[in-house]
C-alpha cells in the first residue's frame, strides 16, 4: 500500500479542494500542516522537485500574496528566492525558518510530487491504487 502525504495550509482553497478530492475518491492520504514540515522533509521533496528546492516556494510574489495577504512584507523573500539571488542551501534554510513560503498544497509519496490542485494529474495518477493490502497469508 502506498503512503501519500498532503502538505497544506488551512484557508488555501487549492489545499482544501485537493483534500476533498482525495477523500471523495477514496484515496487515503495523511494530511500535514506545512507549518510542521521538517528540514529532512524539505530536503526529500527538493530531491524530487524538477526545479529543486526553489520549486517548493511560491513561484511569484503575487500568488504568495493571494494565499498570505497578511504577510505582505515577506513578498520580497519570494522575489529573492525566485530571482536566483540565493543558493539552494540558503533557500532551504529560509523555507525551514519560514514554512509559509512553501507553496501548497503539496501531494507526495516522496517519489512523485504534485504541487497545487492538479485534477488531470491526480485522475491519471490514482489508478490501480492500493488502498489496503488484503492478500496476506
Amino acid at each position: 500500500m502506498e503512503n501519500w502525504i498532503l502538505y497544506g495550509k488551512s484557508g488555501n482553497p487549492s489545499f482544501e479542494v485537493t483534500k476533498a478530492w482525495l477523500k471523495n475518491h477514496g484515496i487515503p492520504a495523511e494530511v500535514r500542516s506545512v507549518f510542521r514540515i521538517t528540514e529532512q522533509e524539505i530536503e526529500n521533496l527538493a530531491n524530487i522537485s524538477p526545479r529543486g528546492v526553489k520549486g517548493l516556494a511560491f513561484p511569484d510574489a503575487f500568488s504568495f500574496s493571494l494565499i498570505n495577504p497578511q504577510r505582505a512584507s515577506d513578498q520580497t523573500l519570494i522575489d529573492k528566492i525566485q530571482s536566483n539571488a540565493l543558493s539552494d542551501n540558503e533557500v532551504k534554510s529560509l523555507l525551514v525558518e519560514n514554512p509559509y513560503l512553501i507553496v501548497s498544497p503539496i501531494l507526495t509519496n516522496f517519489e512523485t510530487l504534485i504541487i497545487g490542485y492538479q485534477y488531470d494529474v491526480m485522475v491519471n495518477k490514482f489508478r490501480f491504487f492500493k488502498v489496503r493490502d488484503i492478500q496476506q497469508a
Partner: peptide, 30 residues
C-alpha cells in the same frame, strides 16, 4: 473493490471499466 480504487478488469465473465467503490470495509484486513 475492497482494496483498490480506479482499476480496469477484463476477464472471461466480467469487464469493469474504471472500477471504484466506497465505502471500503471497516474491518481489517477485510
Amino acid at each position: 473493490l475492497w482494496s483498490e480504487q480506479y482499476f480496469d478488469h477484463k476477464g472471461e465473465f466480467f469487464e469493469i471499466k474504471d472500477g471504484f467503490s466506497e465505502p471500503k470495509p471497516v474491518q481489517n484486513p477485510r
